[in-house]
């Protein structure tokens, strides 16, 4: 069974933080390749690097609270023929060390893997300083950089293994809070490829990261109001699978993008750029709109910003001219 076969209304799915899949994937990548190394900026357990550290202590390096050093040491390690994974919170890496990533990893063309955990609003109580919302915009404008935002922990595990085998520098966006595990080991994962998780004809719902699940659930709510939504998942934000988006847009004539990030320059920005250039289509971008986050319980904050399935469905229905879709 794959995610596409599984209905959101089926019995409740297990939940797990996306970052836990990264922890397992890194351990597996380390087993497959003894040149995979890991560096962390004083957040080993919360970024799930402890599995790798405990299995391969001589290939793990604790950098301390120093995110600029984190990625630049990694650049040197990559130059010496390793595949370094660096982890911190996304607010700090790439939040604080963007220029070092650009100059010493991307422009320098070294395969440094920047892993930003705790991205998005679902960091919840920590508040705006720790809710990284600008990272998609920051990282996708960087030449040479691959940008990946998995939808759940199972996909994060596969993405990590795939990135370890890829020669390019990359940014892997992870989340803190437990979210439904709806993909399965059988789901394919190919860097640079989007996927159709639900076929439909009335509207295209394009998601990345944690929002893909919310869109799937929203699609089910919309179905009960006679709206047949197609749901696309883009784990890889860069390079972007424009063909998949454009072909779906051509069939439905209406596109909705959703992300736990700033829509300006973010995934919504990417969708807008792609459509306006290749196939101008009506577009509703859902995400954070030019403001900072705030403290609250994770789901409460996501709800407050209108990004839970119930709120998404209502906003989409309204845009489509259908009322009372949030029942």
């Amino acid at each position: 069974m794959t995610a596409a076969d599984r209905a959101p209304s089926a019995p409740p799915l297990p939940t797990e933080p996306i970052r836990m899949g990264f922890g397992r994937g890194l351990l597996e990548a380390g087993r497959r390749n003894d040149r995979v190394v890991a560096l962390c900026a004083d957040l080993v357990e919360s970024t799930q690097m402890h599995h790798f550290r405990d299995a391969f202590p001589t290939r793990f390096f604790e950098v301390g609270v120093a995110e600029q050093n984190l990625v630049t040491v990694a650049s040197g390690m990559a130059a010496a023929g390793t595949v370094p994974f660096t982890s911190s919170y996304a607010a700090f890496s790439p939040g604080r060390n963007w220029e070092q990533i650009k100059t010493t990893a991307a422009l320098n063309d070294r395969p440094v893997k920047v892993v930003g955990s705790h991205a998005g609003l679902n960091v919840g109580p920590d508040g705006a300083t720790h809710q990284m919302l600008e990272d998609i915009a920051l990282m996708r404008v960087m030449p040479n950089m691959v940008v990946v935002a998995p939808a759940d922990s199972v996909e994060a595990e596969k993405a990590t293994i795939a990135l370890a085998a890829d020669p390019r520098p990359c940014y892997l966006r992870l989340a803190r809070d437990a979210t439904p595990v709806f993909t399965t080991p059988e789901d394919p994962f190919v860097l640079g490829k989007g996927r159709v998780l639900r076929a439909g004809s009335d509207v295209t719902l394009a998601g990345t990261g944690t929002m893909t699940w919310q869109l799937l659930a929203a699609a089910e709510a919309l179905a009960s109001h006679g709206i047949d939504a197609e749901v696309l998942h883009f784990a890889t934000i860069k390079p972007f699978d424009a063909d998949l988006l454009v072909s779906s847009a051509a069939r439905t004539g209406f596109v909705v993008s959703a992300e736990e990030a700033q829509i300006a320059g973010g995934f919504g920005g990417l969708v807008a750029e792609t459509l306006s250039e290749h196939r101008p289509t009506r577009l509703l971008r859902l995400g954070v709109e030019d403001r900072y986050g705030e403290s609250g319980a994770p789901t409460e904050v996501v709800e407050h910003f209108g990004l839970t399935a119930r709120r998404l469905a209502a906003r989409i229905a309204e845009a489509l001219g259908v009322t009372r879709a949030d029942g």
Partner: peptide, 26 residues
């Protein structure tokens, strides 16, 4: 050329990472 540089402050870290791998892993 062994590195790309210009923005200041990053070379010593790169050197540390490189030195560590050749010493400890190689």
């Amino acid at each position: 050329l062994e590195n790309t540089s210009g923005p200041l402050g990053s070379g010593l870290s790169q050197g540390a990472g490189w030195a560590q791998i050749v010493r400890d892993l190689d």
